[in-house]
Simulated assay, not measured.
Amino acid sequence: MNRIGRYERVVRLVLLLDRAASHVPPAVTLSVLAVQPLSKTLEKGKDPVFASETLSIRRVTDDAVVVSVLMAGLRSDPPLHRARLEQLKQGRGGSSTEFKIIVAL
Rank of each mutant, 00 (worst) to 15 (best):
T97E: 01
A83E: 10
L80V: 03
G93C: 08
E98N: 09
E86K: 03
Q87D: 09
S95T: 10
L88W: 14
A83F: 09
R84M: 07
M71A: 11
A83S: 12
Q87L: 14
G93I: 08
P78C: 07
S95K: 15
P79R: 03
G93M: 08
M71Y: 08
H81M: 06
E86N: 09
E86D: 12
H81F: 04
E86T: 08
G73N: 02
L80A: 02
M71P: 08
P79E: 00
Q90T: 15
Q90N: 13
M71V: 06
Q87F: 08
L74K: 03
S96Y: 11
R84N: 10
G73R: 05
K89E: 14
S76Q: 14
R82L: 13
R84H: 13
Q87V: 14
L85V: 10
L85T: 07
L74Q: 01
L85I: 13
R75K: 15
L70N: 00
T97C: 11
T97A: 10
R92V: 03
T97M: 08
P79F: 06
R92A: 03
G93R: 11
L80G: 06
D77P: 10
E86W: 10
Q90L: 15
Q90I: 14
P79L: 05
L80N: 00
L70D: 08
L74Y: 01
S96N: 02
P79G: 08
A83Q: 06
S76Y: 07
G94Q: 04
R92G: 00
P78F: 12
G94H: 03
G91F: 09
V69D: 09
G94K: 01
A83H: 04
R82C: 05
S96G: 05
S95R: 09
P79H: 09
R84D: 09
Q90Y: 07
E86I: 11
D77Y: 02
Q90R: 13
L80M: 02
R82G: 05
G73L: 09
L80K: 04
P78S: 01
A72P: 12
V69A: 08
A72E: 15
L85F: 01
S95C: 00
H81I: 05
S96P: 00
L70E: 07
G73D: 06
S96H: 11
L85E: 06
A72C: 03
L74H: 03
S96I: 07
K89V: 15
L88I: 01
D77A: 09
L85P: 02
S95E: 08
Q90M: 15
K89L: 07
L74V: 04
L88M: 15
S76C: 01
K89I: 11
G94M: 03
D77G: 07
S96C: 00
A72V: 01
L80P: 02
R92N: 00
H81N: 10
R92I: 03
S95F: 03
S76N: 15
Q87H: 12
S76R: 12
S95H: 12
L80R: 05
K89T: 14
H81E: 08
V69G: 00
R84S: 12
A72L: 13
M71E: 12
E86P: 00
L70Y: 05
